[in-house]
Amino acid sequence: MTSVGVLDELKKLQILELLEQGKRVDGRALDEPRELVVETNAIPKANGSARVRLGDSEVICGVKIQPDRPFPDMGDKGIFICTAELLPLSDPSVETGPPGPDVIELARVVDRGIRESHMIDLSQLVIEKDKSVVGVFADNVVVDYDGNLFDACAYAATAAILSSKTPKWELKNDVPTIVEGKESEVPVTTIPVSVTMGKIGRHIIVDPNADEWVCMDARITITTDSDGNICALQKGGSDGFSLDEVIKCGEISVKVGSKIREKLKQAKAGNQ
């Protein structure tokens, strides 16, 4: 539960005043995300990993790839699961214990963006149909908090998947066994990019920082794929959007997303 204190109210006044002049607290344009720094292979023991800074929000994502049993109705598809967790060292307000609704939503929205874009071609991750498949697990941990974890976690997971190498398995006496020397990249069909926008008053801002985050009336996270299609969306917060605003946010997410996609591609290329 975040309660809005006196300080937040004062900050909100200042943020609103600046927005009326078309400015933001940190000097960015309204549709300008913060600087994105991507470092891949930060955790060599993982099959793929990335350490991402979006402004002062910092997330580490590690990808583990291992054989698993398929879901009962999905015997011809591999498994993809993406999680997100706020570590207690990321912010004084974070407590240990089971995740609250905010963190559950965060993890589910990040997972949905990557899943619905069909980024990973799961049909290629089958060891033997209905018996054994390959599972790709992308776990995000937030180590420093400065707002907009939706995008920070999504970029970390995407970069980590792009940098991943998967072993090859085959069944020997029903046990998945690694075939040596057959490592390959994870089969990727598209690069999803999520763009989170906040609504403060009548203004729409891209990539809200922590101060803007507490002042937002509502927010919207839109994920687009490499073809410029929209593949996942989540509205949040205690206010609504007009039809025009929703359409405009869709356009912003395609435009801003394409620049970030180039950055994520570079991270992969620089890694090889």
């Binding site: 899943r115 410029g228 299609n229 929209i230 969306l233 989540q234 007009s242 039809l243 929703v246």
Partner: peptide
Amino acid sequence: NLEKITLLQLDGVLTPEEYKKCVE
């Protein structure tokens, strides 16, 4: 009455045109 969207989610791939048509 207020012409305001207060719940909006999406999973699945839509072109920008389909996205607009879907909301409408």
